[in-house]
Each structure stands twice: as C-alpha cells, then as structure tokens.
Amino acid sequence: MATINLTLKVWRQKGQKDKGRLETLPAPGISTDMSFLEMLDVVNERLTLEGKEPVAFDHDCREGICGMCGAMVNGLAHGPERGTTLCQLHMRHFRDGDTLMIEPWRARAFKVVKDLVVDRSAFDKIIAAGGYVSASTGGAQDANAIPVPMETAEEAMDAAQCIGCGACVASCPNASAMLFMSAKVSHLALMPQGRPEAARRVLAMLRAADACGFGNCSNERECEAKCPKEIKITHIARMNREYMKAVFGSARE
C-alpha cells in the first residue's frame, strides 16, 4: 500500500459571523487507496486526539449520489478529476509532497455554516417554486398508458441525475444556479407528465433563483466542466427555450 505526505491549507470558520482563515495542517502517511473524505477523517482523528476541533465538512452517502459533500480543492470544485464528487475522489490522484488548498463553496446564495459546510437551502427554495409535477397521490392512471420514447426518457434521465451538490454554482464566476435549475426544468419538460406545468415551472423557478441571489449565466461553461454528474449545458439551452415559450405563451398546451 503506497502512502503519500501532504500539506493541507484548510478554511476554518467558526460560524457565519466569523471571518475565517486558512489553517495549515500536515497530513502525513496518507494511503493512496483512501478517498478524499477518508483522508480528512484521518486528519480529524489526529486533531481530536490533540484536543483540537476537527474540520467540519458535510458528507453522508460517500458514494457520489447524495450530493452532500463538496469543497474547492486547489480552486476546483470536488477536486481535479472529471465527473467525480469529493467522496469518490481517491488519493491516488495526488502526489507525495502536494499542498492542497481546501475551501468551502463560495457564493452569495450559499453562506458558510462552519469550516467547509455551507447552507444550500436556496436550492430547496428553487425546487419548491415549481420543480415538481402537481400530481397528488392516488389518482394516477396505469404507468404504461403513455409511452415515452426511450431516447426521451434517457435524455430526461441525463438531466434528472443532478445530485444538487452546488459545484456548478461554486464553479461559476457569476455564482449562477442555471445548470442546477435547468437540469430539473429539462427533465420535467422532456417527460410528457411534466408538460402541463412546463411554462409555469420555468418562470417560477427562475424567479426564485433571482430572489435567492444567484447570478446570471454568461456562458462560461465552468459548471459543465465541474459537474460530478457531467450534466450538459444543452439543458440550459432547453431551459431558455422553455422560458421563451412560456413568455410568449406557446407552452400552455
């Protein structure tokens, strides 16, 4: 088992009101089989035994699906690997002697809760504004009543697999939530069950995102490059089309 020695420069911030600062923490003897979060576990065990407070970071599934984890590693959301969440990033991608700068997502709409933990409740607000199909439990017809072309379902699934981690916002120079939002708009606009509300949905979600303080899209494509689920910005294009249809009234079908 190979091991490497690293130096971490980690953002430490007690709470929202604290200003925060970078702290240098050595991370010696890290096995290259570890995940990034397991590396942080090891550092935290040591801090704990030294009577210091461990680094706070969000995580839960540790298999790249819950969207809970995430931090900027050397300026890159979820670190250097493509299509990878921080929990799925393995230490074999780093070299002995590396210094890693680890910081929380930064965006006007995401306030730091503590250290690497941020408040992403703005995403929930966007979904609450319209990211659903208004079909209450109990009234559904048979599941096979409406055929959906395989390609359409697959394309919807490409969008629907967004994990809501916030890397797109953190990577965007404007801290825009367009990729996140478009993933939901696109998923539901593609599925026939989502069509009846398509116009209302896109307008309401865009309004909510503005109210939360997310920025606009200026086609930087950083979001797409850092999305751990590799969600494409073509969904933003589809959202824009849905928006145009909604504004000009043709989406009310």
Partner: peptide, 16 residues
C-alpha cells in the same frame, strides 16, 4: 403508476 405520473424517467423499451 404514481411515480410515473410524477415524471420519473424509468428505463423504457424501444416501444416506449
């Protein structure tokens, strides 16, 4: 039935 009504993109065959 309910999950399909909610727009879940379940896997489908070529016939949809």
């Amino acid at each position: 039935d309910h999950c399909v009504a909610q727009g879940i993109p379940f896997a489908r065959d070529y016939g949809g």
